[in-house]
Amino acid sequence: MEDPNPCERAKKWLQSLQKIENMNKIDPREAPISLDSSNIYEGFVFRGLQIDQLQEGRALCTFKVPPRLVDGNGIWPARVIMSLVDNVCAAAIMTCDKPVKVSVDYNLSYFSTAKTHDEIEIDARVLGHKGGLSTVVVDMRNKITGQLVAQARQSMHNLGGLTVTPRSKM
């Protein structure tokens, strides 16, 4: 069986992030990804992400902010936005037939709030690749008003399968 194209791999990967909804419902024999706590968190955060378009160098998604992901004031918090941005950036890189990478630089600017039931467009575009480094820019906009909610610029590096342990200089 032939490997799916890069956009199809990115789509399947993003869909796999949505599958772990509740620890009590998980059958380890059927889990698409390992059952560590970060994957359970991703399933909780990503459930409901709609993949609108994947093409080389771009991932366009829509996310309706659910009540489970807002704070006590009904506002979509930064930590949730950052989780979505991180993984949608990785998917955009995957559409270029590049491996999923490790974030090495992450800049996120907030311009307005998003609240429960707001529909947000997430548009991730690869700016370029140099060596093992890839850079992506993401605009998150309210689909109804067009207002920019947040903008991110993220660089990810492919470590080539190597695990690097930083050494103390002390």
Rank of each mutant, 00 (worst) to 15 (best):
R68I: 11
R125Y: 02
R47A: 09
S16L: 05
V102G: 00
G146S: 03
Q147N: 11
A150Q: 01
Q154P: 07
S83V: 08
F46A: 03
P99Y: 13
N73I: 02
M140D: 03
Q15W: 00
S37I: 14
S168I: 06
E30H: 05
V70Q: 01
H157C: 13
V138S: 07
F46R: 07
T113Y: 00
E8M: 11
N73V: 01
H129D: 08
M156N: 10
I33Y: 10
M1L: 03
D97E: 09
E30R: 13
P166V: 09
L17I: 08
R47F: 03
I93T: 12
V126M: 15
S112D: 08
I122N: 08
L35D: 02
C96F: 00
P4H: 11
L14R: 03
M94D: 00
A152C: 13
P4E: 09
D118C: 10
R29K: 14
T163F: 11
S38V: 15
D139T: 07
V149C: 13
N142Y: 02
Y110I: 10
G43K: 11
S34C: 10
I93L: 07
I81N: 03
K64I: 15
R29F: 09
F111M: 05
I20H: 07
S109G: 10
N22K: 14
E42H: 12
V102W: 06
L159D: 00
Q55Y: 00
W76Q: 04
K19F: 05
G74K: 05
L127H: 05
V45T: 13
A31S: 15
K101E: 05
R47D: 11
Q147T: 05
Y41I: 06
Q154G: 06
Y110E: 03
V80S: 04
A59Q: 10
G57D: 05
R47I: 02
E121R: 15
Y110L: 11
T116L: 05
R58H: 08
P67L: 15
G161Q: 15
R141E: 04
P4V: 12
V45Q: 04
M23G: 01
H157V: 13
V70M: 00
V100I: 11
M94Y: 01
L84Y: 05
Q151N: 12
L162V: 12
P28K: 09
I33G: 10
C96K: 10
M170L: 14
L133N: 12
W13T: 13
Q50I: 09
D97F: 08
K143E: 00
V85I: 12
K169C: 02
G74I: 08
I33A: 10
M23W: 12
A124T: 02
K11W: 01
M156R: 14
M140V: 09
I51E: 04
A59L: 07
T135S: 15
A78R: 07
V137S: 09
T145V: 03
V126K: 13
N39H: 15
L69F: 08
F44W: 13
K98D: 01
